[in-house]
Amino acid sequence: MNDALNNMNIESLKFFGKVNASISHELKNILAIISETAGFLNDLTELAKQGKELKLSLLENCSNSIAEEIQRGFTTIKQMNRFSHSVDAPVMDVDLLDILDLMIGLTGFLSFAGKVRIEDKDQKLETITTCPFLLQNLIYRILCFAYECAGPEGEIRLRLSPEKGKGILLTVLNSAQMPVEKFPDEKIKQTAELLGVEFKKNDSFYELNLLIPYVCDKIKELEKNQ
């Protein structure tokens, strides 16, 4: 158990670093667009000084583009902030939809990320008592596995079905076949074990099912010690 926990700590740190690196990459892309657009505006100003006609539509396009990128930057920073606060306490009551939404956003920065949508996003779900950081780690890895199978044109759907008194069944539906025999890998298995997440076997190559408990003994123990 201690070895498993040590491994988890190392893996958790790696996960934290990986996500932060992808956020910084996204922010650099945003700044690069703003920088090029500002540079282009500067180029246009220099041309105007030389007597060249300045098209207002070009200025409008540039200001719209900058505004869009600033909005993209705000969204990214909000996601970064939500992710950072997921380590505030080892155990918290969380809304699974919120966690999925954040992980879709953060995995979206990866070059191999495909399209993902959550079915019935407006449904009201009971909160789950869990370690949010580890649950994020688990979902992030599962989404990465699904993206790698789906390819850039693929589509992934996430379905949430409450199971009374037990937890929430998360079904990952992929437009492409998944090598389900390779799932879950050792890292996913270890994280799932700590969270009490149970993988449900099925015969389809297109779906993965995992039951995320409302609470489990290991989490209760962790909660007691926090």
Binding site: N29, A32, I33, E36, T37, G39, F40, D43, S65, E69, S111
Partner: peptide, 12 residues
């Protein structure tokens, strides 16, 4: 794949 970035760079 950052379309706005390359388009703007090409214009400049």
């Amino acid at each position: 794949d950052e379309q706005k970035f390359v388009n703007m760079l090409a214009k400049r």
